[in-house]
Amino acid sequence: MAIFSFDTWQVTIFSLVVGLAATLLILPFGIALAYLFARNEWPLKTLLETFLLLPLVMPPVSTGLILLKIFGRRSPLGRWLYDRGVEIVFNWKGVLIAMAVMSFPLLFRSVRTSFAEVNPRLEQIAATLGASPPRIFFVVTIPLAYRGIVAGALLAFSRALGEFGATILLAGNIPGKTQTLSLAIYNFVQLGKDTEAYTLLGITVALAFLFVWSSEWLLRSGTKA
């Protein structure tokens, strides 16, 4: 893939693009699951929730190893995908999946909290006014929870950019192919290329600052209103 041949900016752009794709990929699932968890009670809910949040506390390398076992060519799923020309391991798709899995818990938690803060009474009243469940969800619930959803997406995106452990196991550290900002920094430090490493460091700090700051600003403007 020539377009991802090494260059500081290309590593940055690759990370941003795949990170954004991972965030967009998990967004619908995160929103749907968060809503289910915020509004319903069922047996074993806590167990399932713990399972969903595991990647947040597990060593990322362990998560990466699990992903490698799931998507590796020797697993049934990996084999099935490979037979259809889809290769996950040591490929940008591996980066995407590692980022998606690692960021999901952050998105899920943030969105679930913001759904829980939406007064269910408003949804009930919308129903008495004749609104259908999809209309209630998209016209009442989502707009009232949007700050938490956007903040959660920003957090997930930042987490995706910082992903290292799971990515390196599932996708490797192939310059121009699967190398992200974090992997590149590690690489440059290993090779003693301090200037390149510090350039990338500067970029990651700036990006992280931007995302965390906007996420905080969003949540704060929400509490004031």
């Binding site: 009930q124 009243i125 129903a127 008495t128 006014l129 004749g130 609104a131 259908s132």
Partner: peptide, 8 residues
């Protein structure tokens, strides 16, 4: 609730 036609 949505088809009862009851305002609340």
């Amino acid at each position: 609730a949505r088809s009862r036609g009851i305002g609340y």
